[in-house]
Amino acid sequence: MNIFRLLGDICHLVAIIVLLLKIWKTRSCAGISGKSQILFALVYTTRYVDLFFTYVSLYNSVMKVIFLASSYATLYLIYVKFKATYDFNHDTFRIEFLLIPCVILSLLITHDYSPVELLWTFSIYLEAVAILPQLFMVSKTGEAETITSHYLFALGAYRALYIVNWIYRYYTESFIDGIAVVAGIIQTILYADFFYLYITKVLKGKDFKLPA
């Protein structure tokens, strides 16, 4: 464990909690892409299947349980409890266009072909693009609630910090995982224009609105 990865995991946890609180407190999931949340739940489910048969550390297991529980709780809030506030008209990204390429790619480029490794590789590729339905929805509505922009910033910052963690691990442990690094860089790049808008607007107290 290193400080960059710890900060990354904290950002990740903050993002998930902020989203849950936003939906719970405002009793509304307006502006939130349920499809992205489905993809995130799938990412954690396919990545953390080892939760039941390997033990890395208490921290690792506790965080996995939190991520799994909170992602399914978010799905429940969106598609069951506050279903009436779900903006399905704007949440129209075709996630099959993300799922199928990720399945194919995880069969073409993977460390090995054991089921758990294939699931891990699929989850890495899927996580890189899981935010696309949400970013697509923000571009369609042209704006996002400030709390939603904080959620997106924390979520983007988590993987950006993981890139720093990978650089650190490369130089200190000569550890590198090319699949995770490439996917993580793509994932972070997808947030680039959002980061720009967030820093130039939201941090100056303005609303998060895309230039018309």
């Binding site: 990865r5 995991d9 990740h12 080892d50 390997t54 033990y55 890395v56 690792n60 965080m63 996995k64 991520f67 460390h111 054991s114 758990v116 490794e117 891990w120 993981y162 963690n165 995982d177 995770a180």
Partner: peptide, 10 residues
């Protein structure tokens, strides 16, 4: 290396 050695990150 085992799965958890390779993938010790979240």
């Amino acid at each position: 290396a085992s799965f958890s050695d390779l993938h010790d990150e979240l």
